[in-house]
């Protein structure tokens, strides 16, 4: 931190010296320009006539959507069950697959740093980079529309997420405990079962519940691309402009999200 002194010898506190300060200002200027340019492009691509009309349209939609069509709930029970299954089974399968990937990716447990670890990291990054909706889009094309495609999409998307958090947890373990188990003459697998697994169990439980919570949210929209669950009804209602049904579905989704958050908070509290 540069501290310059003025003529009277008083120290003048400055965060940066002159050149850095200039650089910072230039950075801000550049950033602002980039932002303004982006905004300009978005603005150019927008039909502003519709935007000025938006309050009226929003009010109109609100008018039509309320009150929700409560009777419709009876045709939603099955989609809700499907949604729950997509999220839960997807999370379970993802965890089963994420564990080996995490062990292969962690620096301290990978069998080979130069070949296997990069492959594991590649699996993680590909799985994480692509949204579950896109995976669903692809899987609907491959295995056909339905709950199965949705579950696979959730599984594939969650592998990377879980494996990343898990391998970070593995890299942070206390190595002396592993050393102690090694010193007893334990085999490689025993070292894993006694020295490593107990240490990462809390992280594993936390990650599972955290991801399950996220997956409940994500599985509610998978139906939009035909991958089963309540999103299918949402899509149908939107297409037929049945706004009272849309509002009911949105309420159900909101409710489901609140419940899943509550459950995951409870479970996390119980485990850790």
């Amino acid at each position: 931190m540069p501290i310059s002194s003025d003529k009277s010898g008083l120290k003048v506190w400055q965060r940066r010296d002159r050149n850095t300060q200039l650089l910072v200002w230039a950075g801000w200027l550049l950033g602002t320009m980039v932002f303004l340019y982006c905004w300009r492009q978005i603005s150019d691509a927008t039909e502003w006539f519709f935007v000025w009309d938006a309050p009226r349209i929003a009010a109109d939609i609100g008018d039509r959507a309320l009150p929700p069509r409560w009777a419709y709930i009876n045709s939603l029970w099955e989609p809700i069950w499907d949604t729950l299954n997509i999220a839960t089974l997807g999370t379970l399968f993802a965890l089963v697959l994420a564990v080996p990937v995490a062990f292969l990716a962690a620096r301290n447990t990978t069998p080979n740093r130069y070949i296997i670890r990069p492959i594991a990291l590649l699996i993680i990054v590909s799985s994480r980079s692509i949204n579950s909706l896109i995976w669903a889009l692809l899987l609907v094309a491959v295995v056909g529309p339905g709950v199965f495609a949705g579950m696979l999409a959730i599984t594939i998307r969650s592998i990377g997420f879980c494996a990343k958090l898990l391998y970070e947890a593995i890299e942070e373990i206390d190595q002396s405990q592993v050393e102690a188990i090694t010193a007893t003459g334990a085999s490689r697998w025993q070292i894993m079962a006694y020295g490593i697994v107990p240490q990462i169990m809390p992280a594993f439980a936390g990650i599972s519940v955290f991801r399950w919570d996220i997956n409940i949210r994500e599985s509610t929209v998978l139906g939009l691309v035909g991958a089963g669950g309540i999103g299918l009804q949402l899509q149908g209602s939107l297409n037929t402009l049945a706004w009272p049904q849309v509002s009911l579905i949105l309420l159900v989704i909101l409710f489901a999200v609140l419940i899943s958050e509550w459950v995951s908070a409870k479970v996390r509290g119980a485990i850790i």
Binding site: Q177, T184, A186, S187, G195, P198, Q199, M201, P202
Partner: peptide
């Protein structure tokens, strides 16, 4: 047998499991 500075017990296992881990070999 090895005894460590910071004990190096597997913290989340029970005392009994820690002792028995000496038999792993």
């Amino acid at each position: 047998g090895m005894i460590f500075q910071e004990y190096a017990l597997v913290e989340r296992l029970t005392v009994m499991e820690n002792v028995l881990s000496g038999r792993l070999g």
